[in-house]
Amino acid sequence: MTDHDQQAAAARQVLAGSFHGVLSTHSLELAGYPFGSVVPYVLDQEGLPLLLLSPLSQHTKNLEADSRCGLTVVEEGEGDVQQRGRLSAVGKVTPCGADADGERYFCAFPHSRLYVEQLDFRFYRFTPLRFHWNGGFATARWFGNDRILRANPLSPEAQRRIIAHMNQDHRDTLRGYLRTIDATAGEEEVAMIGIDAEGIDVRVADRLRRIPLLRPIGSPVEAREVLVEMATQPGGD
């Protein structure tokens, strides 16, 4: 794998595993100036960030007037933020239907279902034009969508089956997966909330974590093979 490929892969994991970012819109109040807001998101079936926005928020009002915006996400970690990966994208945010993607969002953020039912929040999709990645010294570069966006190869139903099976029968295994990225992880409750071509997403207490797969998958059969293999890795129990 070339350095370019490695950097693109790292950028994809940051996009998939950040779960929130800074959305920069065009200010209505101060024309010509950017307006930044922290917003949660998940990746939809096509690998695009899915947002749930209030009609009363300033960023939503800004987007209704001008859908052009930027989204910046930062790799999880401690210490100097400039030593962590940072991914910025420019594109547009537009309203969308959700369906299965909406359920994915609610799985990540359970409290948000009430926002839709009682507060008239709506789903929006961020469609990027290009990405800019900075993973550390001498790594800054632009990437096209083809290098960063990855559609989920598993159908929503296949995802639900895998998630239900892991949560029902393999809680200890999920804790083992968590220890591969966090050696300090204890016996806290871990629940799987998502799986895609390159990683699984879990909830640990009130925190969302991303666990990369050993290799990309393209089918439920490959998902099972990789998950079993990961369970035999050091720290994977």
Rank of each mutant, 00 (worst) to 15 (best):
R130A: 14
T72V: 12
C69A: 04
A197P: 12
P110I: 03
D237C: 12
T72S: 10
D146M: 12
S24H: 03
F137N: 10
L87E: 08
N167S: 06
H4F: 12
G102M: 04
E187I: 00
I181G: 03
P234V: 04
M1T: 00
E157K: 13
F126G: 01
R207V: 05
V42I: 13
V93H: 13
V221E: 13
T127D: 15
K61S: 09
R113C: 10
R125M: 07
S27D: 06
T184R: 11
F106N: 06
G79E: 03
P234I: 04
A205I: 00
D99L: 13
F19S: 12
D172C: 02
L119D: 15
N167I: 01
L154C: 06
R150V: 05
T60M: 04
A108P: 15
L53H: 04
V90D: 14
M192N: 05
L15Q: 08
F109G: 11
Q233M: 13
P216G: 08
R207N: 11
I193R: 10
R86W: 01
D80Q: 07
D206G: 14
A197Q: 06
C69Y: 00
R68K: 08
H165K: 08
G236W: 10
S24N: 08
G36E: 01
S27A: 11
A11C: 10
Q118I: 04
R141V: 03
G102P: 11
P234Y: 07
H4R: 14
G235L: 13
R113V: 02
L56A: 09
L71T: 01
E188N: 12
P55V: 04
N152F: 06
R209Y: 05
L114P: 15
R161H: 12
A31K: 01
D44C: 02
A183Q: 14
G47I: 01
L213I: 05
T139S: 15
Q13P: 00
R203N: 08
Y105W: 08
R147D: 14
T72L: 11
Y177H: 11
A197W: 06
H26W: 02
A151D: 11
A158W: 13
G176L: 05
G144D: 15
P220V: 01
A185D: 05
A231P: 15
L15K: 05
P220F: 01
S67Q: 04
S219I: 05
L213V: 06
L119N: 12
A164P: 13
N62C: 01
G97E: 15
V202Y: 10
A9R: 12
P212C: 04
P55K: 08
E189Y: 02
Y105L: 06
Q13T: 07
D182H: 02
F143I: 05
D80A: 03
E188V: 02
Q118G: 05
S112A: 15
H20V: 03
G186M: 05
F121T: 03
K61T: 10
L149F: 01
Q13W: 08
T60C: 03
R203S: 10
R203T: 00
R122F: 07
F109T: 14
L129V: 13
Q58S: 11
V73P: 14
H132K: 06
P216I: 00
A140W: 09
V202M: 10
A65R: 11
H165I: 09
G91M: 03
R12P: 15
P212I: 01
A138W: 06
